[in-house]
């Protein structure tokens, strides 16, 4: 009997997901939009850090290499949650101290900016490793040939290294993007209104826990599945003109 009541409860509580109030659909979608904004920002920032880091690790001097090794090791060994707290407090503190030193009033850093900065630094450590591996997988002859033609380093990176490493990097980057979308949920703990936080508020207010958590889960899953399809197409595009790997890979 209670099982039936529960099933009925779930059916009636579908109204709670309606787009306009009293439904909470708009809140969830706004949370999803915020999550995606942070994920995009963090992934982009992570890519920039990753490219710089990978080049530093491959071509930098011994000091730079060791510093980058410390960065990637520390960031990958400490839980994201702890890093988010440390960086969140530290970044806010640093910005405010700078502002005070300049004679400006203190500000509260917006959750969006702080979230992108923090997750970007975390993503950068992983992206450094992914891109370093991908650059190393480029046949050295291609880079040597470009050097022999007298290509300047930046043009070499733009025309040869980066496009040639893309097929090797995309599976790793796809994983990173999925990690980025899921890590945005951690910002709920510092109170930023992304999807998980909005879900918790909606569920806590209406007591329809299953409805909202399942709905949020479905939204996350949709993002994951759509991104998976897009990344597969992107990889196909990056591999254009290369012999198919099917048959050699298991």
């Amino acid at each position: 009997m209670p099982a039936l009541a529960f099933a009925l409860d779930l059916a009636t509580s579908l109204d709670l997901l309606a787009y306009s109030p009293p439904g909470w659909g708009a809140n969830l979608l706004r949370g999803l939009a915020n999550s995606l904004k942070i994920a995009f920002g963090a992934f982009g920032l992570g890519l920039l850090i990753g490219i710089a880091g990978a080049y530093g690790k491959l071509y930098g001097g011994p000091v730079l290499r060791d510093l980058l090794a410390v960065y990637t090791t520390v960031v990958r060994a400490v839980p994201e949650l702890v890093l988010i707290l440390i960086l969140y407090f530290a970044v806010t503190d640093a910005v405010n101290q700078l502002l005070v030193a300049l004679g400006q009033p203190r500000i509260q850093l917006s959750g969006l900016v702080a979230g992108i900065a923090v997750l970007g630094v975390v993503q950068g450590a992983y992206a450094t490793e992914v891109l370093r591996g991908a650059i190393q997988a480029v046949p050295p002859g291609q880079i040597e040939a470009a050097r022999a033609y007298g290509m300047p380093p930046v043009m070499l990176a733009r025309r040869v290294t980066l496009p040639a490493m893309l097929p090797f990097a995309i599976p790793g980057l796809a994983n990173l993007w999925l990690i980025a979308t899921k890590d945005t949920a951690l910002l709920a703990i510092v109170g930023f209104g992304e999807l998980t936080q909005e879900t918790r508020q909606a569920a806590g207010t209406t007591k329809a826990y299953f409805t909202f958590y399942l709905a949020a889960g479905a939204l996350y899953l949709m993002v994951t599945l759509i991104s998976g399809t897009l990344f597969r197409r992107l990889e196909g595009w990056a591999r254009r003109g290369q012999p198919s790997l099917r048959g050699t890979a298991s």
Binding site: F6, L178, K182, T196, F210, Y213, Y220
Partner: peptide
């Protein structure tokens, strides 16, 4: 796919708050 496609935090909260509010009934 479902486990890898959704955040762990959401799974924990779904089980704790969801099941936790269901069982007492």
């Amino acid at each position: 796919t479902v486990i890898r496609g959704t955040p762990l935090l959401l799974q924990i909260w779904l089980l704790y708050y969801g099941l936790g509010s269901l069982f007492p009934q």
